[in-house]
Computed example of a mutant assay.
Amino acid sequence: MKNILITGGAGFIGSNLALKLLQKGYVITVLDNLSTQIHGENPEETSPLYNSIKDKVNFIKGDVTVIDDWKKAISNQDAIVHFAAETGTGQSMYEVEKYVKVNIQGTALMLDFLINNKTNVKKVIVASSRSIYGEGKYLSKTLGDVYPKHRKESDMQKGDFDVKYPNTDVLELVATDEDSKIHPSSVYGITKQNQEQMVMTVCPTVGIAPVAFRYQNVYGPGQSLSNPYTGILSIFSTQIKNGNGINIFEDGNETRDFVYIDDIVDATILGLEKEEANGEVFNVGTGVAIDVITVAKTLIASYGIEVPLTVTGNYRIGDIRHNYACLKKIEKTLGFSPKVDFERGISNFTSWVDTQEVKEDNYDKSIAEMKKKGMYK
């Protein structure tokens, strides 16, 4: 395979993947609509992500919801890496039609074209997400492995943010593996589950190898510092750089698995190049759970800018409490293990942020929007 199409290839993960594949001698086509939320008002002039790939790839400004754009993009491609999607757990809960149209319908158009036309495509990699698991996997001393349902709003209103499971009291958080229960708690998670299942189901019927990667929380140099809807590292960084205080949801003890961009790119390339990946789904993360208070304090210390840190007790509808990845499958099958730990990754990230123009802090506007829609309590 030589010719690779990356949808959403001007985005954070897509542009980094494109540059690495170019170094390896691949010919890259990118289909991207240069979304204002990610790239700003004048993306073709001012977007660092777009400009990093400009004139290096065959760039098609188009949209995955438009079949004619798919027709142009898929021509002569040997493989597709499908990243194009609306992202953001909170926003997905009140912009339902947009998330379904882009994430589900856009993927359906791709598959419809592959099914009904002769192409050179041999493999499709789809960016799935840890969000499809909803709450992570837990161990009960009395019941064994359990998968708690979404938390009750009545509990969170009282400041009780921990997950519950019937007929047991003590739950131990453990790594979520690929065989864990799929029960997303947001529209975004539902659309990622749907994308993954469609690709894994449809592609083999026409001899195309599908691969799905369930990415954890991806971060690193180059990610958008102006998008207030996703990526707490960039959101917190923009707040700190503006001298604004950080308001932390819940009690601050909620955890995520933060995985560095270079590791995401390396895992994705293994999926592209290794036949052992065909027909499989993989977690990609670090296998380490880090709480949000630690994230905020680490960023404040790294920037050397003191700002107030407030644990608010507020919460968003659709958020999960904990989830971190089990990496046994990807280690065994593809030989992947993350190379960048959180400390080094944060150092790289904040060093990059220090070189960037300080972006306007639009976080309060996003919170007001969510509150108005009843998604922020």
Rank of each mutant, 00 (worst) to 15 (best):
E196T: 14
L22E: 09
K328E: 13
P43E: 07
K101H: 11
I261R: 00
M375N: 15
L327A: 06
K192T: 10
M156K: 01
S131W: 03
V81P: 05
K192Q: 08
N323S: 12
Q197R: 13
D32W: 02
A209R: 10
A175Q: 14
A325D: 00
F213Y: 15
E343N: 11
E306R: 11
L21E: 07
V187P: 04
A289F: 01
P338L: 05
L299F: 04
K274A: 01
P221W: 09
D162L: 05
I190H: 05
Q105K: 13
E45I: 13
Q195M: 15
A127E: 13
N244F: 05
I330F: 11
Y99F: 15
V163W: 01
I290K: 10
Y376I: 01
I290Q: 05
D179T: 13
P48Q: 03
T201N: 14
T191Y: 02
R316E: 12
K54T: 09
V27T: 11
S47P: 08
T142Y: 02
Q37Y: 06
I6L: 12
I132T: 09
P43W: 04
E196D: 11
T89N: 12
P204E: 02
I248F: 07
K54Y: 06
M200D: 04
L327P: 02
K56P: 03
L272Q: 11
E41F: 12
A79C: 07
I240C: 10
T46G: 00
G345M: 06
G231F: 07
E45D: 11
M375I: 15
V124M: 02
D263V: 01
T29Y: 07
G245M: 06
E172H: 15
T36I: 14
A84T: 01
T191M: 08
F349A: 03
K118S: 11
N348F: 14
V174M: 11
I38M: 13
I115A: 08
G11S: 07
G252S: 11
P148T: 03
E331F: 01
R214Q: 10
K192I: 10
A85E: 10
R316S: 13
A175E: 11
E360R: 09
D145P: 09
Y26A: 07
S347N: 13
I125P: 04
N253Q: 15
G90H: 00
I248M: 08
A18Q: 07
F342V: 06
I248T: 04
L111Y: 07
G144Q: 04
K149Q: 00
E275F: 06
I240R: 09
E41T: 14
V170T: 09
A301G: 12
G8C: 05
L109Q: 10
E250H: 02
T238Q: 13
V96P: 03
A18W: 02
P221R: 06
D162C: 00
E369D: 14
I300W: 03
E95V: 01
F236N: 05
R214F: 04
E95P: 00
A73N: 06
Q77W: 03
G287M: 12
I208Y: 06
E172V: 15
K141Y: 13
H322A: 08
K339Y: 01
N167H: 05
A85P: 03
S35H: 01
I293N: 11
R316G: 07
S154Y: 00
A325G: 00
W70Y: 07
I264M: 15
E196C: 09
N42M: 04
G222Q: 10
D262Y: 00
D361Q: 00
T238E: 13
N283P: 03
K359L: 03
Y26H: 14
G279T: 08
T255C: 10
